[in-house]
Write a protein that binds this DNA or RNA. Structure first.
Lengths: 157, 157
DNA sequence: CTCCGTGCAAAAGGTTTGCACTGGT
DNA sequence: ACCAGTGCAAACCTTTTGCACGGAG
């Protein structure tokens, strides 16, 4: 991410912390900064490694905790957010997924129209695309029911 | 998956085993069958639990090993196949990913045309879609180079 | 007899939790 | 002085590995 964008995002984060009365600690700021500065979707451990020398007494635990907080605040995202266990899919053909962000349920979408979308080649030369899969995120019927009862459909993640 | 489809898939698997001179053991067949019969993208452990009483001495290890074999054979798929560690993404806006199936590298795709695709609502009533993200799988420039040297572009995962 | 798949147990990551300490307010 | 964030260590969960047993060719 470009330095200017990083700065903007950090400022937004700072504002968000103030609004939520959350202390903006060095660790929080630096972990977010380190994540924003790289484009390679690092793991918690990779972030820890890259920060360990800059923030001497930094603990892995803190990296995990801060990342969890950032996700909860909506400032960063988990990729493949299902707990930690790998999930398997018996369907090998092209198909897509509905992923409920409340209960992590994954529902198959077999829709020929989606499979045949006229996909523009993304400008990334050199990458040879074999296949694709669309991940729709949202709220499943079941969780909608539950949230409707509570009257809080705005459970932003 | 419908019983007929399950049967078809199991037959294909049997044929594939014969072609590869791989023994079609009870465990292999039943683990695949259990996966095909459910639509909820189970974890290895969930499959183990559902099979433990049907196949008495079944071991978790075998479930993991057989699932690995099935993936390698192309009969089933891993969802979010990056190793085991969770990866984080600093971009929270709509964007997409190129995922190299050789080195697991993830590259961001920020392409307005992709973001604005006229997406048909999948027929799944009740699911409220907030957003989506397209996962393109293939081979990154770097790995293409490596495989070209080796002359073996068929490093199937 | 040999080979390979399996089961068990132990190891190897990755992530979370309990508890004490510390820094800012 | 208080509260929340942090660090350390240990626990926990998922996955892999080493080794011995047993069944099929």
């Amino acid at each position: 991410m470009k330095p200017d964008d990083v700065r903007t995002r950090l400022d937004e984060f700072e504002a968000l912390c103030r609004r939520r009365r959350l202390p903006l600690t060095v660790q929080r700021r630096d972990i977010l900064k380190a994540l924003l500065e790289r484009n390679d979707h690092p793991t918690a451990d990779q972030l820890y490694e890259s920060l360990a020398d800059r923030i001497p007494g930094l603990s892995r635990t803190t990296v995990y905790r801060v990342l969890g907080l950032l996700v909860e605040m909506g400032v960063v995202r988990r990729l493949h957010h299902s707990g930690t266990a790998v999930r398997f899919d018996g369907r090998v053909g092209r198909h897509h997924h509905l992923i409920c962000k409340h209960c992590d349920k994954i529902i198959d979408v077999c829709d020929a129209a989606l499979d045949e979308l006229p996909l523009p080649q993304p400008g990334n030369e050199g990458f040879e695309i074999d296949d694709f899969s669309i991940h729709f995120t949202g709220t499943c019927a079941e969780c909608r029911g539950k949230n409707a009862e509570k009257g809080t459909p705005t459970t932003d993640n």
